[in-house]
Design a protein around this nucleic acid. Structure first.
Lengths: 234, 234
DNA sequence: AGTCTCAATGATGTATACAACTTGGCGCAT
DNA sequence: ATGCGCCAAGTTGTATACATCATTGAGACT
């Protein structure tokens, strides 16, 4: 459902709205639009060369996904996820990842392992402090990993939760040691690559669960510092 | 997120849209609008005494939730869930229910057990064959059960998946033995009531998981028959 | 009789004017 | 100087006219 509607939509307008949706979602999740940003409908309408109507349609969906807060007379502001809710989301993500092993395609598609090696190289090629680049790379990596799941319901759910937490993870990044994080992600990808080569889907799910656990630790550590420093993201 | 936005929205328009959303969602999930039905925007606009614009807004959300298929030039038709996808959703629901025990409010709120006794009486008072009444009762029951979960992310997720499967479950009902189903649901509620009185949240989650498993069995049995008989739900 | 074409119909999609709302600043009274 | 109130600017929300699309039926041609 939802974002998996890349199949025969038929109508061209659906495809266009889906495209705009994905673009805006990725911008929010890579904090090109950081939390607190206002997405002005007229601006977006001008950029995508449509009227406000289809833009508003997309914004409604983004609000339903928990990425935006639409406020009458104020603006469409990228929302912040409270630490308490963040922990809840991470907890559910861990549950899902732990159970996802049973639903990975086995054997893995040809070239999957090499794909993950590529992801790693992208991360390592990033300029230190390029948070947006890190976010985009992270979206690619996670989307690729989740696409290996055959249960479409589980897949959509994990994607949605990933997108909800992504921007908060990126916000916490500047408070952490960049090279340390890159090393951690590289090790993560090494482990996943190994498990894929070993054709161990259950292990892959468990490893993903552990990485989410570690990620939660890091993000909370980062936010614990930054929440008092940069209270106003604007 | 999503349907949990009953808190301080501020704007009255948000509240109105939320209300319309819940009404239409419940109608779909209780098959007052059975799969294949067309929801004409002008009709709904007239009923709720607004223009098509806010109605379309709600319909977009319902489509995103996987309840509607909006087709340009055709109509907004209540979608059917393919058996394959249905199994996937039920599988995820079982995973979530099984893990939900850790997140039930403990101790349970005062009067929770009596509430479940009431649910049981509602089911038993239904006239045989009143599928819509069964659907509405089921929505109440399940909403009440899930509201005991403290993890809001998990709660929203389970609710969403429940709403996705509800109409298919009701469609399969006429192919099953009514009194047998009522007895099964009554036993279900008895067991949940007992576990609530025992203050056993973990057991409650596991029992819910088992009931979802049984429900999946019944619904597939029902659809196995009705899928060939009532192919055109219109 | 059968089939193809096309126009009429009715639905959703889009654009735009206007209404409702929030916020900030300016001015006035205290 | 300060606090209060009101107005203006800017934003989202709504209503409506029109565009676009899919279906269906009649009619003409074969």
């Amino acid at each position: 459902m939802t974002q998996s509607s890349t199949d025969t939509d038929g109508s061209a307008s659906h495809a266009r709205k889906e495209l705009i949706y994905q673009i805006l979602r990725d911008r929010i999740c890579a904090i090109e639009y950081p939390p607190g940003s206002k997405l002005r409908e007229t601006d977006l309408a001008e950029e995508f060369e449509v009227s406000r109507t289809p833009i508003r349609n997309v914004l409604t969906t983004l609000e339903h996904d928990g990425l935006l807060a639409v406020k009458h007379g104020v603006g469409n502001v990228v929302s912040l996820v409270e630490p308490e809710e963040l922990v809840e989301i991470y907890t559910v993500r861990m549950i899902l990842a732990q159970s996802a092993g049973d639903f990975f395609a086995s054997p893995f598609p040809e070239g999957t392992a090499n794909q993950f090696v590529d992801y790693k190289e992208v991360f390592q090629a990033l300029e230190p402090g390029d948070v947006v680049g890190f976010g985009r790379a992270n979206i690619c990596y996670y989307t690729g990993l989740i696409s290996l799941i055959t249960n479409s319901c589980l897949r959509d759910m994990m994607l949605k939760l990933f997108f909800q937490t992504s921007r908060m993870w990126l916000i916490s990044l500047p408070s952490l040691d960049w090279s340390e994080v890159v090393v951690a992600v590289s090790d993560e990808l090494d482990e996943l690559t190994r498990l894929i080569r070993l054709e161990d889907p259950i292990g892959l799910g468990l490893a993903a669960r552990n990485h989410i656990f570690m990620s939660r630790r890091r993000i909370l550590a980062g936010l614990g510092i930054s929440l008092t420093e940069t209270r106003n993201p604007l």
